[in-house]
Amino acid sequence: ITIHVNGVTYHFDNPEEAEKFAQKMAKTYQLKMEIHNGEFHME
């Protein structure tokens, strides 16, 4: 699972971890999250 946050790329093997991380980042930084081709993009 690949997550892009403001141009920084994070890779996770565990989908649950990826989702937790994505939600935490979105909440902490008030980010808008989109999913493209199974990759999370946040800005």
Rank of each mutant, 00 (worst) to 15 (best):
N6P: 02
T2S: 08
N37M: 07
F21S: 00
F40N: 03
E19V: 13
F21Y: 02
H41R: 05
T28L: 15
T9V: 11
I1S: 03
K27M: 11
Y29G: 14
H4D: 02
K32N: 12
Q23N: 07
D13F: 10
M42F: 11
E19L: 14
E17K: 09
N6R: 12
E16I: 10
Y10P: 00
H41D: 03
I3T: 01
N6T: 07
E19M: 14
E34D: 04
Q30F: 09
E39K: 05
F40P: 03
F40H: 04
H36N: 06
T28Q: 14
H11D: 03
N14R: 08
G7D: 05
N6I: 14
E34H: 13
T2K: 12
V5N: 01
I3Q: 00
E19A: 12
E19W: 15
A18E: 00
E17I: 09
H4F: 08
H36D: 03
V8H: 09
T2L: 11
L31E: 12
M33I: 14
M25N: 01
H41C: 14
E19R: 13
K27Q: 11
Y10H: 04
F12H: 00
K27Y: 12
V5P: 00
I3F: 06
V8P: 00
E34V: 15
T9L: 10
F40M: 11
H11A: 07
H4P: 01
E34F: 15
N6H: 12
I1Q: 04
Q30Y: 09
T9I: 10
G38E: 04
H4V: 06
K32P: 08
G7K: 07
G7A: 06
K20P: 01
H41L: 06
Q23W: 12
K24Q: 11
K20C: 15
F40S: 03
A18R: 02
M42H: 03
I35T: 04
I3L: 05
T2P: 03
H11Q: 07
A26R: 09
M42N: 02
E39Q: 09
N37T: 04
E43P: 05
K24I: 13
A18H: 01
E43M: 14
N14P: 01
T9C: 15
T2C: 14
M42R: 03
E34Q: 07
Y10E: 00
G38I: 05
T9F: 06
E39Y: 06
I3H: 01
M33V: 13
T2I: 11
F12W: 02
M33E: 03
E43T: 14
M33W: 12
K32I: 14
N37F: 10
T2A: 07
T2R: 13
T28C: 15
V5M: 06
V8L: 10
L31H: 07
K27F: 11
E43D: 05
E16D: 11
H11V: 08
N14E: 05
Y29K: 04
D13E: 09
E39W: 07
T9K: 13
Q30A: 07
H36A: 04
N37L: 08
N14C: 10
K24N: 06
Q23R: 12
H36L: 11
P15G: 08
A18K: 02
Y29N: 12
K27A: 12
K32A: 13
H4S: 03
H41I: 08
T2H: 14
G7P: 00
E16R: 11
Q23C: 15
H11I: 08
A26N: 04
F21G: 00
Y29T: 08
D13Y: 11
K27T: 07
V5G: 02
Q23H: 07
I35H: 03
E17Q: 07
H11M: 07
E19G: 07
E34M: 12
K20I: 10
